[in-house]
Design a protein around this nucleic acid. Structure first.
Lengths: 243, 243
DNA sequence: CGCTTCATTGAAACGTTTCAACGCTAGTGG
DNA sequence: CCACTAGCGTTGAAACGTTTCAATGAAGCG
């Protein structure tokens, strides 16, 4: 994948939500980047580290997670091509959570210094990236609700709808089906449930003709049923410039 | 309270975490502001609205919350003097959650337009405010862990330590005691537990000689016990410029 | 003083976890 | 090509943490 393929997904997203002109695009695309291939589960940055670059996802998925007192892990977010999962490290020097690859992926590391300079010189890009970190926060808020208020069945349905909605925007869905290489144990860590319970909930969703999970691929069997299994309102994703 | 009293707490915080010079301070302090007194529980902004101003807390507390499908409410954050709880509305046009007063308070509303202009003209302030929204997100991440992984006893201990730590920074604690006008039902909405269960947990904390809750005042009876009741690491608050 | 809000209690029901065992499948090396 | 292995998913039963409901008490306010 060449550099234009790497920056295309994020520029598309930024353009959809902020004023970005051609010069902004060119400036962003000419940032220095180091491309790196990562394998499933591979560490990208970890708690306590002070990264000097941000990572832009060119292909594949990334997760952010935190280890809690008892040794259990809580997944905080899943990220897809076009996301910069550790953009916050530009201004928060020490990582307060881990970033790991989910499945094999391709990452473009952008050093902080030139990125900071770009932000200073191009207000539009600053605004767009700032907004990006704000939608990130909006997603965290919804996750607090998910984990705090819903039962596991509804939590999982909500998570699937979130992933599906975001993947659809970047054209990585196949109708009602999409690749997403997470195990049931990982879904458990994301919704705050044990892997055993996730297994039971997945079967329930399958038996109800709602969803099919199999080997890294999720298929929505009945979108209406899926939506009625939870209360998913995409407003919090702020997908539109007007939102 | 005059205007300098209103902006002092936030300027103090911004200076602690970013490069802010005297000119930045003066520019911030000369922003137009409308001071408004609010009473307990009063709505400040609500889901779906498009605010045209941000609210800076001069005195009192504010909470952010979201109503989930079943009609239950999840509290997302508590805010204290010096915070701008809806700063994200500068770039996310539609509110995805509610902001309400917690106890009586004094708010300074800063219109978006002059604030946006200040951000464009003064990079330091832009960086400082951006960083502010990033620590906000870091706190949301920790709340996901709190609600997703810990048992209620540990969840409540964690929340109390967070509030205590942040209040201490702005000098609003009285030794190991501080005012915080939340009912047990509100604590329940914050940690994703029923008010009945919060009552039981509060009693347990009291009987163990850890904490005392009474009429809007929290007293830490034994800080070591409180810390050993949960796994609180203030790193995620990014209180220091080096973090 | 009465009213309302907040906190407390007990008991039953519920959603979820834990543990340990087992089956399936995909990949690996002989 | 088959046997072996490791990881993932599934199952049942008991235990656990938490919710729900309804009733009661205590405290603050007009």
């Amino acid at each position: 994948m060449d550099k234009s393929g790497v920056v295309a997904p994020i520029l598309q997203r930024l353009k959809a939500t902020a004023d970005i002109d051609q010069e902004d695009e060119r400036a962003f695309a000419s940032l220095p980047m180091t491309i790196r291939r990562v394998s499933d589960g591979q560490k990208i940055v970890a708690v306590g580290e002070r990264p000097s670059a941000c990572c832009l996802i060119a292909d594949g998925f990334v997760l952010r997670a935190k280890v809690v007192g008892d040794g259990n892990r809580q997944i905080l977010a899943f990220h897809q091509p076009g996301d910069i999962p550790d953009l916050q490290s530009l201004f928060l020097n020490v990582m307060d959570h881990d970033v790991n690859a989910l499945g094999a992926g391709l990452l473009a590391f952008i050093p902080h210094d030139p990125l900071r300079q770009l932000i200073k010189s191009r207000t539009n890009i600053a605004t767009a990236l700032w907004r990006d970190t704000l939608t990130d926060a909006a997603m965290f808020r919804e996750w607090i609700c998910n984990v705090g208020q819903r039962v596991a069945y509804s939590r999982l349905a909500h998570l699937v709808l979130e992933i599906y909605t975001r993947l659809k925007v970047i054209g990585r869905t196949d109708g009602l089906s999409f690749n997403f290489p997470a195990t049931q144990a990982l879904f458990g860590e994301a919704i705050g449930a044990s892997s055993v319970h996730v297994s039971r909930v997945v079967q329930e969703l399958r038996n109800n003709g709602v969803l099919e999970f199999s080997r890294g691929r999720i298929t929505i069997l009945d979108e209406a049923k899926l939506r009625s299994a939870t209360d998913f309102d995409p407003l919090y994703l702020h997908l539109d410039a007007s939102l």
